Structures are given as C-alpha cells and as structure tokens.
Amino acid sequence: MTPLRLAVIIGSTREGRMGDRVAGWFVDQARLHDDLTVTVVDLAAYDFPGAYPAEPTGAIRSFVDEVRRADAFVVVTPEYNHSFPASLKQAIDYAYDEWQAKPVGFVAYGCRSTGLHAVDQLRTVFTALHATTVRDVVGVDLLCGEPTPLHVDQLRQDARVLLDQLRWWGLALREGRAARPYVS
C-alpha cells in the first residue's frame, strides 16, 4: 500500500516562535510510522503577499500544490488571543478544493489552554472547507516548566492517538476520493 502523505503545517510565522520546535517534535513522532510519508510545510518559508491578490503568486501556487499532494494534515498552531494566527488563516484561504475530503489533526500550544481555543476556531474553518477534523488533539502547555517523564509520555501517547485517527481517516478518504471524486 502507498504510504499516506502527511503534511505537517507550521502555522506561526512570528520571530522567536515555538512552532518549529513543537512541529519538529511531532514530526519525529510521525516518522516512527512506516506507513506515513511526512512533509513539513513551514508558512514562514513562503513569501505570501500582504493582502489577498487577484492573481496567485508563485508562493501561493507552491503552497496550494503542497495541500493538493497531501492525503492528511496536521496543523501546528499557537493560540493568540483565543484564536489562531492570521498567517495561518491567510494560507488556509489560498486553497479550497485541495482541502476537501481530507482529514486534519491539530498540535496546539499555548498558555494554560494548551491552544485548544485556536483548535476550536480552526475546526469551524476546516468544516467550511469540507475537510474532516479528527477528534483528538495534542496540546502542549508552554507554562508547565520542564516536562516531567509523565508529561512527555502523555504527549507521546496523545501523538500516537492523533496519528492513528489520521491514518484511519486518511486511508478511508483517499480510497473514497479515488472511487468517487468529492463534489461540494
């Protein structure tokens, strides 16, 4: 069977962000699974225009191609003011059909809430794009201090559960799209 193509999207572009470190940890967990091909899609690497353009730029086309190629997604997002970053919303909006009938999971980080407010907002956005969001989330509390072995074990277990759900939905939806193209 062809491995599931998982795109891990780093949603923050801020200087000094934690997203690249959180995503790196998650990618290490995902690469433990031979049935996944993992690609990192770092929004900071794209030169997106400041406002929505009339004509797609090369950066936009490149991002949309990454979304098109993927079978499933994990969005790594911080929580800013009970929501997710504007850079992530801008990128999500550049694609439409490319998200359809594909599963999306979340690795969120923040203070106290572990980014869950951002995830709640993102579920609404992805539902409007006809994507399927998986139930379980990996939430990282940035105020917990040094992770204890128990905390690290729980994060690893959360990542395993998220990846199991993504693999199930990713395979089922990939087979469904192959048998009958999705129409919205």
Rank of each mutant, 00 (worst) to 15 (best):
R123K: 12
P56V: 09
A59L: 10
P53S: 02
S87H: 05
V119G: 05
R174M: 05
P78T: 00
R160W: 12
Y46S: 04
Y96L: 09
Y182T: 14
V138T: 04
V161G: 03
Q121F: 00
E55V: 10
D136K: 14
W169K: 07
R69Q: 08
D120A: 11
V22P: 04
Q90L: 14
E66N: 13
P78E: 00
G139R: 07
Y80F: 08
V75R: 01
D164S: 15
P181R: 06
R5N: 13
D47L: 08
D47M: 03
P181A: 11
L4Y: 03
R135H: 11
G16F: 06
K89H: 07
F73D: 03
D42A: 15
V138L: 02
Y96W: 12
A70H: 06
T13V: 14
P103R: 00
V22S: 07
P49G: 11
V22D: 07
Y96C: 04
T13I: 15
D153F: 09
V152I: 12
A101D: 08
V76F: 00
S113F: 07
G11Q: 03
A54M: 09
P56E: 15
E15M: 12
V125D: 06
C144G: 08
R5H: 06
P181I: 10
L150Y: 11
V119T: 08
T39W: 01
T124S: 11
W169S: 11
D153Y: 06
A159S: 06
T114Y: 05
S83I: 02
P147Y: 14
L129E: 10
A159D: 02
A70I: 04
D71W: 01
Q90M: 11
A72L: 04
V67D: 00
G105A: 04
V67E: 02
M1W: 04
R17N: 11
V40T: 15
L122F: 06
V74W: 00
P147L: 15
A86S: 14
E79I: 00
R167E: 15
I10H: 01
F126W: 10
A172G: 07
G50D: 08
V119D: 09
L166T: 14
L129P: 03
H117M: 02
A101Y: 07
L116Y: 03
D20Y: 12
G19L: 09
L171H: 12
R5F: 04
D93F: 09
Y94Q: 10
R123D: 13
R123S: 09
R112V: 13
L122Q: 03
L173C: 13
L173M: 15
T132P: 04
A44Y: 04
S87Y: 02
G110V: 05
G170S: 06
K102W: 03
R112W: 09
T37Y: 05
V104I: 13
D35H: 07
A54R: 13
P56F: 09
S83E: 01
T124D: 10
